[in-house]
Every structure is written in C-alpha cells, then in structure tokens.
Design a protein around this nucleic acid. Structure first.
Length: 276
DNA sequence: CGCGCTCCCTGGCCGC
DNA sequence: TGCGGCCAGGGAGCGC
C-alpha cells in the first residue's frame, strides 16, 4: 500500500490523536505480523506517553516518554484507524488496538500482514538494522541531483530498480518511481549510472515534486489505502502513467500508448516515446 | 558488493 | 456460481 506520501499522511493523523496522550491499553490479536510483536509489548507501552511521531523512509517512529521508540511499517496493506469511541467490533484482520487516556482508540488493520512493529530506544535508533542503511530523505536537504548521481554511479541495474532501492533514496515505491521517471523524461530501462548531471537533477526534482504533490493530496488510494480518519487519498487521479497500460500518453502531441513491463518482478509503466 | 528471483500473505478481479 | 491464475502500494533472504 503505502509509499512515503501515504506514510507521511498516516503519521500526521497519528500525531493529531496521540501526541501528549498516554497509552492505557494495548491489545494484540495475534502474536506476529511479518515478524513477532516485541516481547511484552503491551506491558512496555502501557502507561507511556507519546512525545513525538515522525517518519523515516516508509517507517513510522513513535517516541515515548521513557525514550522507547516504536518502529512501525505498514507493508503493503497495513492501515491505522483512529476512533473517538471505545468499544466496537474487532473486524477481520485487525491485529492491534490501543486505547489512550484522552479516549482515542487506535486500530491497526493489515490483511496481508507484511507490516511489522519493532521496539528500539532513542540511543539505538541510528544503528537499528532496519534504519541504518537507508539513503537520504528525498524531501530533506541531503538529497539533490549530484547526491543522487553519486549514489547511482556504480549501479548497472535499470534506473527504475535503483530508485526503488531504499539505500539510494528512502521512501520511493513503485507508483512514485514510475511517475517521477515519466515526469523527468527518463526511461525506466536506462542503466542507473548513466543518470548524471542535468538528468539526475531533473530526476531528483521530479521525485521531490511528485512526493510533495501526493502528500498535498493525502496520498494515493488504489485498493484499500485510507488515512487515519478512514478517508481516501486522491493523488491517484493525478497519475500520468501508473496503472495506465494501453492509455494514451498524457503528453500533448505524443500519440504513443503507455506500456507495462516487469522489472525485478515489479510492474513498470512508462511512455517509450517520451522517456529516453 | 550488486543484482534479480522468490517468497511472505490475503483478497480482488478476470476469464473460462 | 465456482475455480484457477494473476495481480497488488514492500522488503528480506538467497544464490549467483
């Protein structure tokens, strides 16, 4: 499901409900998602107050008043829902529910269970195995054309595959990789190390622009993504190529049709006329 | 080290 | 209506 814009939207929703609120009850409805829930996670979180919520790549980081950090990942189908009323039926695929002192109920739902929750501490966060190899945040100051080009220079794989690699740039997924390549006129099949100079600048700009636009739209909803209020994102209406196989290229004057190919097992959508 | 394939899991959709 | 095949926003692990 979620790439950087969707995770960012979820973080903002969680922040609204959880910041400075205290966890009063943690209920787990199975012992694991992709990985086991941390040992004694309910006891470790109960009574703790949330002091910060942030995002790194596609990870949600929830910091508590004792310097524990919950590292959450939504996988392909994870979602949080915040309600103001306690109670209510446990629906299928709900795996974790929190209740808070201010009366919020936070429900985690994940049919495919590729998501996971881990616990770390403030001191260990930078060296956490899931986080330490991540590349720069595309919306931060440590990302630019030259930095991207430098990260790509030894990569012979296709550029599409390279920007899905979270060590090159953190948080870009399949949708926004396709969209950013289209918007920068770069073929997804081009070898990564040939993306240099002005081309790398344009790709870095396109990544930033498409991610920022998607955040403004509340993310993209294809199947089941919703924000923490249950509302749909609407950036999918701005897709130029993703899931548009056989449709006309949106570029005026280009009469080509959008193609779908498979790269490293993932679908890529692009215009072979506009992207070189 | 870099790269691509396979798998984890459930559900929706499509064609027969 | 049922069933098989394919597809899905991610990423870890493995072999080459």
């Amino acid at each position: 499901m979620p790439e950087l814009p969707e995770v960012e939207t979820v973080c903002r929703g969680l922040e609204t409900a959880l910041l400075n609120d205290t966890i009063t009850c943690v209920s787990l409805y199975r012992k694991d998602l992709r990985f086991p829930f941390p040992d004694n996670m309910p006891a470790k979180l109960q009574g703790r107050t949330v002091v910060q919520i942030s995002r790194r790549a596609k990870y949600i980081l929830i910091r508590f008043d004792d310097d524990q950090i919950l590292i959450g990942h939504l996988g392909m189908s994870g979602s949080f829902r915040i309600e103001k009323q306690p109670g209510g039926e446990i629906v299928k695929h709900e795996h974790m529910i929190w209740e808070t002192a201010k009366g919020h109920v936070i429900r985690y739902h994940d049919p495919r269970r590729f998501g996971f929750m881990l616990l770390s501490t403030v001191d260990d966060l930078d060296t956490h195995p899931r986080l330490q190899d991540l590349g720069p945040e595309p919306l931060g100051n440590a990302f630019s054309g030259p930095i991207l080009a430098n990260a790509l220079k030894r990569r012979k794989s296709p550029i599409k595959t390279a920007i899905l690699d979270q060590t090159i740039v953190a948080g870009v997924g399949n949708i926004y990789a396709c969209e950013a390549l289209y918007r920068s006129g770069i073929s997804p099949k081009r070898q990564a190390y040939t993306v240099t100079g002005k081309r790398a600048e344009e790709l870095a700009d396109a990544i930033r622009t498409v991610l920022n636009s998607a955040i403004e739209s509340g993310g993209s909803t294809l199947r089941d993504y919703t924000n923490t209020s249950g509302e749909l994102g609407y950036f999918q209406h701005s897709f130029q190529v993703y899931d548009k196989e056989g449709k006309e290229c949106p570029n005026t004057g280009c009469n080509s049709k959008i193609k779908r190919i498979v790269q490293s097992g993932r679908s890529t959508f692009y215009c072979s006329n506009c992207q070189r």
